[in-house]
Design a protein around this nucleic acid. Structure first.
Lengths: 223, 223
DNA sequence: CGAGCTCTTCAGCATTCCTTCAGAATCATT
DNA sequence: AATGATTCTGAAGGAATGCTGAAGAGCTCG
């Protein structure tokens, strides 16, 4: 579960990040408007904590941007402005919830849990990424509505990629995740599995989701 | 790790510098208001030890200056004035911590370690410098929001430059850092890597961050 | 036990990157 | 301006990494 914290007061964002990290969330912090836009552009988050009062651009503008990209799911607004007006504006723009400063971390935690629960329930165990669709209950994978038949390892590999979509993952990380760091020789089997997964996905649609990064690893993304 | 010590009592500043140097910190000393301002302007520090009671200007003024430049991160105030009033003033102006004279060097060390740890945690994901943005987790580099694809060595080189931004770095230092002082011939590979890195950064944005200083080395900075 | 599938190993090939080098360009000094 | 030192550039060989297809090993199920 990845959470983006958009907050200019470093003391606050830090303590939130520290607290949430202990709750097994993976946190990124953006301290200003531009960082936030960049992060949102390059990664997908399960939940975004958004401070409306940022120094270099109104947090509401970020929300507008998110609305354009249809990514407003899971946005929780944090703000010192607890006027009804702001609250309405925020929720109008598609935010999921609203929390006024100051707040207890435990309450924040509860709200986040609620948002994520709702998102998961809504998504009904179906993970979607571009034209790729994974039904984790039926273990059914489709690309552009064409079914893709994967082996167990290929399926696990795909899930790992999707869970870390748009992120660079090293071969070591993949190996550790799929084989539990019992590695004998080199990374030959990873090459083979990736080759096979790639082929199956490209046969179904014709986009190569798996990008190789020389000397670094792989990145599951578009283009 | 670079630390600036702003302190007029040379006996004290010297013993601090000596102690911290042994802890693998790189120390600069400023003995008065103007020296401090110059140093801060010229270089970036991971931590600034600031004595409030300076002869030619109040240390708090330095803090105000730092606040204007938004560089108050990592400031540790040292002062004989241990009144609550001064403490509050200092922390209000954005200082991270406050230490009253006299103090044990070991305590100073602990506080510095805490500050640097916190700063690193903060900067965990994103390093930003002008229009350059480096996400160290995703290993994603952007200039003016354009992604820049770097090779391993180029990426390491960039990280080294950014870690020593605004500082003159010699070819020898770069070589030692990237190749671990196993050098065969001249510095031809550095030339090549810098050329390539420069080209990629300038293709993405159009500012040359890497300034060559004839006979000295390089400086990563603007203009 | 053996057919069918999956996982792993391996060797050869392809790609990308690192380094080297020579010549051109730049700079400081005379 | 001329000189020598330093830096930049583009091209090319070699090293490292990744990809591919095929074949063997392991597993499951009738």
């Amino acid at each position: 579960m990845k959470i983006l914290i958009v907050e200019d007061e470093t003391a606050l964002s830090e303590s939130i990040a520290e607290y949430l990290s202990k709750q097994e969330y993976h946190c990124d912090v953006a301290g200003n408007f531009h960082q936030a836009i960049d992060q949102i552009e390059y990664d997908d988050y399960d939940c975004i904590l958004l401070d409306i009062t940022l120094p270099d651009g109104d947090g509401l503008k970020i929300l507008e941007q998110l609305k354009e990209d249809k990514k407003t799911d899971g946005v929780l607004i944090i703000s010192a402005k607890n006027s009804l007006d702001d609250k309405i504006k925020g929720l109008d723009l598609g935010a999921d919830d609203y929390l006024s400063k100051p707040f207890h971390l435990s309450e924040l935690n509860a709200r986040i849990a609620a948002i994520i629960r709702r998102k998961n329930f809504e998504g009904n165990n179906i993970i979607q990424f571009e034209h790729l669709c994974i039904d984790t209950q039926k273990k059914l994978v489709t690309v552009e509505k064409n079914p893709v038949e994967l082996t167990k390892k290929e399926y696990e590999l795909l899930l790992y990629f999707v869970a870390n979509k748009k992120r660079l993952v090293s071969k070591e990380a993949i190996a550790e995740h799929l084989w539990g760091n019992e590695m004998s020789g080199g990374f030959d089997f990873i090459y083979t599995h990736i080759k096979n997964l790639r082929k199956k996905l490209m046969d179904a649609g014709d986009a190569d989701y798996i990008k190789s990064v020389y000397g670094m690893g792989y990145k599951f993304t578009t283009q």
